[in-house]
């Protein structure tokens, strides 16, 4: 079974994000990057499936040169190959442009049985790309998986919902998106870290994927970011010092809010 995992490499969570007001984007230069923890979960799930059923995992990402840090991490965890979509022509792609590039890269694989993505990335949270990729590849998309099972010709997931979960099955090849709590991604073994250094990351340009300015990049983007700003800061909370009537004050507050 060959599994492709699509994921992002994002600014490290230690970084205080800054917005570039002209580009209406996060500043990405001189910022440490990490493999998106959500993508690490998707990869972990793929690795567990191939460990059970045999096969290999290829990690595919689109991103700036600094993304190599996260790609090495994916290889260290156990992916056996990695494709880095790296081209200035990709800059400014919207979700559909991104999905076209990823789908093209997946189609170039000798074969694939399953694509696994995180439900959404941990930096921009659009949650659209995976289903777009599935549509472009013409395979079923099984989303919000909190458990994934593969059985020869089919994939079955437990699809998380507010009430509980639904059991959904589809024929392979298919695409699955994983929820963030699906697993604890592994800490790479040293052997893995060392072996990852020796694997060549396959870089692909837009031309390699036969994509032009009408498909990817700023020119093709149909989504426009109109403005970007920091969320309004919440006002300071009210601190109640208990001098005997603390309980009453809290009860009054909750009554006022209509909670009790």
């Amino acid at each position: 079974m060959h599994v492709v995992v699509c994921g992002k490499v994002i600014p490290d969570s230690s970084v205080t994000l800054e917005i570039d007001p002209d580009a209406k984007r996060m500043r990405r230069t001189d910022v440490p990057h990490e493999l998106d923890p959500a993508a690490a979960s998707a990869l972990e799930e793929a690795l567990r499936l191939t460990e059970q059923h045999g096969g290999s995992v290829t990690f595919v990402t689109m991103g700036i040169p600094d993304a190599s840090v996260g790609i090495r991490r994916a290889l260290a965890m156990g992916a056996s190959a990695a494709v880095h979509l790296l081209d200035d022509a990709f800059a400014g792609s919207d979700t559909l442009g991104t999905a076209k590039a990823l789908a093209a890269a997946i189609r170039q694989q000798p074969r694939f049985d399953l694509v696994v993505c995180a439900t959404e990335s941990s930096d921009s949270y659009s949650g659209i790309v995976p289903v777009q990729v599935a549509t472009l590849l013409g395979v079923p998309a099984l989303t919000f998986a909190k458990q994934v099972f593969v059985d020869g010709e089919t994939v079955t997931i437990h699809r998380q919902s507010e009430e509980g979960y639904a059991v959904v099955t589809a024929a392979l090849p298919a695409l699955v998106t994983t929820t963030s709590g699906i697993n604890e991604p592994r800490y790479p073994q040293l052997k893995g870290i060392m072996a990852a250094r020796k694997i060549e990351i396959q870089q692909r340009s837009a031309a390699d994927l036969s994509l032009g300015p009408d498909d990817v990049g700023d020119s093709a983007a149909r989504e426009r970011v109109l403005s970007v700003g920091a969320p309004p800061s919440r006002g300071a909370g009210r601190l109640i010092h208990d001098e005997g009537d603390g309980g009453r004050e809290i009860a009054d507050f909750l009554a006022q809010a209509g909670v009790i």
Binding site: P32, E184, Y187, Q189, L190, K191
Partner: peptide, 21 residues
């Protein structure tokens, strides 16, 4: 740690944090 990766979540977080920052 290095051959088995048989570690708890707290140590994994520690290692990843030290590595990243």
């Amino acid at each position: 740690v290095m051959e088995e990766s048989r570690i708890g979540k707290d140590l994994q977080t520690l290692f990843e944090n030290l590595d990243a920052t």
